[in-house]
Structures are given as C-alpha cells and as structure tokens.
Nucleic acid binder design. Structure first.
Lengths: 208, 208
DNA sequence: GATTGATTATACATTATGTATATCTAATTT
DNA sequence: AAATTAGATATACATAATGTATAATCAATC
C-alpha cells in the first residue's frame, strides 16, 4: 500500500526555525571567523546547537548552506531598495543611488566578504554568486541605455557597463575600504569614478 | 665532535633543479586545473616526479610552494619593465605604460588567477601577496605625486592612488576580461579610466 | 672508506566533507 | 489509543588533504 504522507504545520515550523537558527549561526561564524578556511559545518552545527547531520538534512551540502546564507544576507541587505532607485526619473541620480545601495550592501555584513572568499574554492558556488550579481549588471545596463546619447556606440556602452560593474563590485569596495575609508567615503569615490566612466557616452561635439 | 659539514656544488645544483621542476609542475597544475580546490601537493609532486615529502623539504608547506610559484611568475612576468616605465619623462605616459605592464602580467599566466584564489583560504599567503602588491601602490603613488597639481589636496591624491590601485588590480582585470575583452582592450579601457581618475588632481579654475 | 645532504619509504595524527544505517521523538492520522 | 511519519540524532565509515616523525637509500664529498 502507498505510504500515507501528510504535511505537518508544527513540524515544518520547527524545521524552518532550525533552518533559521543554522543560517544565523553560519553567518555569525563567517562574520566572527578570521577566514573562510576555518568555516566548517562542525563549527556551525555546534554554534546552532544541532548536529552536523541536521545541517546536511536542511542544506544538502556546505555549498547549499553558503547559498542560503548569501540569500539571507541579500534579503536583509537593503537590495530591495533597488526597485525604487531604478524607478527614479533622473538616470544619473538613479546610478548614484545604486552605488549607494551596493556600498551599503557590501558594508553591512562582513560575512559577504567571506562568501566572496568561498567563491575561490567552490566553482559552483562561485557561479551561483555570479548569477546573483547579474542582477546588478542588468541594472547598470538599463541605466546606461537611458543615459547614453543616441549616437553612442554599442562598444562605448558596453565599456561603460563593464567598468561600472567592476567599480561597484565587492572587490573594488573591499580594496577602497582597506585603504582606510568609511562606507560613505568609498561611496562618494565610486560615484565620482562612475560619473567619469559615463563621459565617453556623451557627445563631446554636439554639432550638426 | 662537531659534525663536519660541507657545501656540495653538485648536490645544491641538483636540489635547485628539483626545486625548479616542482615550481614548474605547480604552476602548470594551477594553470590547467579548474580550481584551486583541486590543487594538492600530491598532484604537484606526482606531476614533478618527486615525493610529496620532497615538496615539504623544499618549500616547507603548501603556502611556501605557492609563494615560490608567485615569485617565479613575477620574475618572468615582465614586471622588470616597471623600472623603465617609472623612469619615463612624461608621467602620464609612464602611467599608461604601467597599466600596460600589469595587464600583461595578469594576462600572461592563468596561474596568477588561481594564486589570487588561494588568498581566500590562506590569510598569511594573502598577506604575502598583498605585500608584493604594495610595490604597485608605491609606483602609482610616485606617479601621482608627479602628475598632481601643487594645489591638489592630500585627500585628492590619496583618492586617485587608491582608485588607480583598484583599477589596476587583478580582480578588475579579471572582471573586464570575463566580459569578453582581449588583453589590449582591457588595457585601453583601464587606461581611460585611470585618466579619468586623474582629473580631480588638475586645477579646473587656474585663477589667482 | 666514512660521512653528509637530498630524497624516499612508511607510518601516523588531524581535520573536513560527505554517505549510510539505525534509532529516537514528537506531531499526525486512522 | 495505536500506527505512522518527518525531522533530528547517534554511530560508523569512506575519502582526501595537510602536516609531522623516523628510518632507509643513494650519490657526492671529505
């Protein structure tokens, strides 16, 4: 006979809570640890007060846990403000706002740095993070299309997009921060650099 | 009685050759491997035709081997041209040349990418690489000092240095390359961005 | 011919990820 | 109330990697 199966509100609620607790413990471990090298499922499990096998039950693998942590950080990192930014009438102001939002995101939780480190050792996780970054690239592309002069070449647009994409990346933020700048100072510097990256898109000789 | 010790030309020559062979095997393994995750001393040792213990004898640790590979790549990566570049009369041309040299360096051997990945899992190796990068920062600083107008503020100079340092970093090169550019195309784009980063250093209102 | 340095052989300790199997417990269903 | 089920645990094991320890090999040097 087919096994009877059922959904259990209390059970799944408890499971969801465990899941949350593990994610919280993982991001805390990432934040407080000195390096991704010391980040082990054993540590996380102990910090969450569960068994290592529970982590596997919930996330399947180390990579699954890291992706869950990334998504959790993304949910609480202020990226939802991007929609409003993109809807701004002034595309230049929208770009400035976008830079601001991402500086806030990279700065919010030092775990994002550790997650970027994890990309180095896990190609599939790296791919997953890159896919999530594509949203940023699409946002930049949309803004460039609004900002660029009609005569601007496709190549010039691509250059601007890729340059701004690189300028708003985590590595750039980390590099500028490491040089002793606050989040806002980095933000202003990146904004200025992005403005400069837009220059080739405007017509220097508006004749005709 | 004190053990008599001696230096052996043939011995140390053979050892040096082994060392070279291991470094070569290591950089090849890094180059051909898909990720730093698969890079093990076992693999390297086999590729070099020696025992894993020989690797430990020669380099002390995994980190030691990675540093040796980095230094080897640096030696053959064209960075020696920096001296000539810095000696150029025109500081702007020198900066362009510097960008060119580093694009060539990052592009030359895909092992450099893997070595940067290794920074994520080994903080001390990361520190070692960062120290080696400081030479680039000093070079940029020297050029900025030559380029900046006398009235340019220290903060504006620091901004320009840090921004150009980030623009000439490996992550930026990798990001722009991943977007489908040749080495030369990346080079030109970075050069343009560096020129833009210099603008705040020049006096827009040369009045007084 | 004895000694020495580099390499090798073998063994072991430690740490991680990931899988397998059986057990336990509390929430649901009948 | 009894059977069932999902989630968590306990225990064990396979695999791979770094790193250390000790003794043995072998050719170069004294």
């Amino acid at each position: 006979m087919p096994p009877r199966s059922y959904v259990s509100p209390a059970r799944s609620a408890a499971a969801a809570e465990t899941r949350e607790r593990v994610i919280e413990a993982a991001s805390r471990t990432l934040r407080e640890g000195e390096s991704i090298a010391r980040f082990s499922l054993d540590t996380v499990a102990k910090a969450a007060g569960v068994t290592r096998l529970t982590v596997y039950n919930q996330f399947g693998s180390r990579r699954g846990l890291l992706e869950a942590v990334f998504d959790e950080i993304a949910r609480h990192g202020g990226l939802h403000q991007l929609a409003d930014a993109m809807a701004m009438a002034d595309a230049h102001a929208a770009l400035d706002r976008m830079v601001e939002i991402f500086c806030g995101f990279w700065n919010r939780d030092s775990a994002v740095g550790r997650l970027h480190d994890a990309m180095a050792t896990d190609p599939e996780f790296a791919e997953a993070v890159r896919e999530r970054n594509e949203r940023r690239r699409r946002g930049v592309t949309a803004l460039i299309d609004r900002i660029a002069a009609k005569q601007a070449s496709p190549q010039a647009r691509k250059d601007a997009v890729d340059l701004i994409f690189a300028l708003t990346s985590y590595p750039t933020f980390a590099s500028l921060s490491a040089a002793g700048r606050s989040r806002d100072e980095v933000c202003r510097l990146v904004q200025t650099a992005c403005h400069a990256a837009l220059q080739p898109l405007k017509l220097s000789n508006p004749s005709s």
